[in-house]
Design a protein around this nucleic acid. Structure first.
Lengths: 259, 259
DNA sequence: GAGGGCCGGTTCATTATTCGAACCATCGGT
DNA sequence: ACCGATGGTTCGAATAATGAACCGGCCCTC
């Protein structure tokens, strides 16, 4: 693996639960020599991708990503394009709708929308990462995404988050086959005990699965009627969003010709 | 310069005017060998920082920055913290307010707010980069920031954007001295002929100038009264925002102790 | 107060990776 | 058909990265 890739890999250890990391901690997480990690973090810092703060001189993600994220949205407004679809889906179902994006071997939260119909709701985290085997979104990715991703994910040790988390690879493969036939993934308490999740794949214009669209509701108010409605609306919204994302890609092609 | 820095440098060539770049174009802009650039872009792509699109296989910024930007805002919500201050400043002055962040040797747009008081307004670009010598924000950075940055900026060839752009280093140094004494930078048509801009520096908790807060108005409706009001409100808002940003840094320190 | 364990940070001989001139196939324009 | 540009690839030479060992400082325990 090249040096650039190794350095960028370090950025993946920062997450919602660990926005601040010390040098030794990053080295431990990355399984790399502290001197090597120090050198890489120093370069990332010089370019604005991380910064050191506080008396303990811990690192956090730096400001350079803000402009790049703005540029990314300007060039290919996935978040902006997805938000109206998510809002409508949340309104129609009365539950939380969210979109995730495949990033390497992980599923990163792209955007989400809440419904104000109820006093409780399933909450989402900005910049959150969802496990693949334990959420509806993750299962959708495994079912409809690159088989190599699926093989790799199921070969790794799988973490149990709740009593409802399936961690047996054989059972998961059966589950994935059921999902493929249904065209929609469901997870009942796989990641959080009281959440019932539904997800469909999002495809780019070449048909490749690049993300997921999902609805998450508290188990307590799930009924057969609500579940059926979620499935119907989610399928339709998924097709719509895949179409919009594909159009965005075509628009990029158009931009070039116009330029 | 290390390999990681060189690779990340490539990301800086993407901008609002050039969201899509071909391999040879990036190599030309970077002054690097095409094989080298290809290898670096391939690694950046593998890590999700760029992606190739279209028949011409051009590159654009990839999705990995979205999560990192979300993480950055979650850890240190500069954009979120600045928006209320910007909105209030825009409301009170009736003109466009914007905040910029120093990124290496450039000033990147952080966030902005418009006023709806008039039918026209000075427009801003997401992910825009402002020239240092030709805008009020840039001049504020040069006046109050690191003298090394100022020396480097004035030593480089300076681009004339309008008839009002000062490109003589000597005159610019005089202008910067005036700005230091006034505590506020003003640029009349330096970057866009019909825009009058005002800016103050933003400091982090150590007192280092890290960005700017600015108001931009069309020249056509500038009056002495409006200019005086903008100066007053901008100074106050600048102090407020510097304080908030400093508090955010202290909060990061607090987060660590709580963890 | 001393000792131990951990932290962030540094050094430099050794090792691994990067570099880039030269080449290739393809495409569009003349 | 030819030319100039593109994206992409190769591999011997050159350069940069690596990491074991070390340093000073801080905090905790005895």
């Amino acid at each position: 693996m090249g040096t650039v890739s190794k350095a960028l890999l370090l950025l993946q250890f920062f997450d919602r639960d660990r926005p601040l990391l010390g040098l030794s901690e990053v080295a431990r997480l990355a399984g790399m020599n502290k001197a090597t990690v120090h050198r890489m973090l120093t370069e990332l810092q010089a370019m604005g991708f991380v910064e050191q703060v506080g008396a303990a001189r811990e690192y956090r993600i730096g400001p350079a990503v803000l402009r790049l994220a703005g540029l990314r949205e300007a060039a290919f407004p996935m978040r902006e394009v997805s938000l109206p679809v998510l809002r409508r889906l949340a309104d129609v179902t009365g539950e939380t709708a969210h979109a995730g994006l495949l990033e390497g071997t992980r599923l990163a939260m792209l955007s989400y929308a809440y419904s104000s119909r109820h006093g409780t709701r399933v909450m989402m985290d900005d910049a959150g990462v969802l496990p693949l085997h334990a959420t509806a979104s993750g299962l959708a990715l495994l079912a409809f995404g690159d088989p190599a991703l699926t093989d790799a994910a199921l070969a790794a040790p799988l973490q149990r988050y709740t009593a409802g988390t399936i961690i047996d690879p054989g059972r998961l493969r059966q589950t994935l086959e059921t999902i493929r036939q249904a065209g929609i993934a469901e997870s009942l308490g796989g990641f959080e005990a009281d959440v019932h999740g539904f997800a469909v794949p999002l495809h780019d214009q070449s048909g490749t699965c690049v993300g997921t669209l999902a609805v998450a509701a508290p188990v307590a108010r799930m009924t057969d009627t609500l579940a059926a409605a979620i499935r119907t609306e989610l399928r339709a919204a998924g097709q719509e969003l895949s179409g919009l994302l594909g159009a965005g890609a075509q628009q990029a092609e158009g931009l070039r010709h116009a330029g």
